[in-house]
């Protein structure tokens, strides 16, 4: 009985805190993406646009580690029973990737573009019995400064 109460408590804590955290995070991601709309990023190798005279360039990186909440973990384990898209993890990796790209942009606010973006995902807990549902994303690219 006690265990059931603890389980229900963890579940509801995860549900309420996790949901509000995710909502807040998405709001902040959208706001900051708007702020950086003038800094285009590309996965291609070449500078975008007509003016391709580069004055300066350097490597930029951004990284983030995000954990999923208890409620979604239980949801995901249920999902792995029935099969199908694990929606609760989809938003986790989406948030992590967008956050990593934003941090990369924030590390060079004066750059004109970031080219050749690559994203690397890893987990410190990979291959462990007691899995913690967290995802680590590393975004990197080359920031270029164009001649005016």
């Amino acid at each position: 009985m006690d265990q059931l109460i603890i389980f229900a408590l963890l579940l509801s804590l995860g549900y309420f805190f996790g949901r509000s955290a995710e909502k807040r995070h998405y709001a902040s991601i959208q706001q900051r993406e708007q702020d950086f709309i003038n800094m285009p990023t590309t996965a291609g190798k070449y500078v975008l646009g007509e003016n391709t005279t580069v004055t300066k360039s350097h490597l930029v990186t951004g990284s983030v580690v995000i954990s999923v909440d208890y409620f979604k973990r239980i949801l995901a384990s249920l999902r792995s029973f029935f099969g199908g898209n694990v929606r609760s993890y989809e938003t986790l990796v989406d948030r992590a990737r967008r956050e990593a790209v934003l941090r990369m942009k924030e590390s060079c606010p004066d750059a004109d573009q970031i080219i050749n973006i690559r994203l690397e995902t890893s987990s410190i807990y990979k291959g462990q019995g007691k899995q913690i549902g967290s995802v680590e994303v590393l975004a990197y690219g080359t920031a270029v400064y164009l001649a005016p």
């Binding site: 804590l13 996790g18 580690v65 995000i66 954990s67 909440d69």
Partner: peptide
């Protein structure tokens, strides 16, 4: 892991 969110120490 219960509440969800960024793991700042690991970042």
């Amino acid at each position: 892991n219960i509440f969800g969110g960024e793991l700042k120490g690991y970042t």
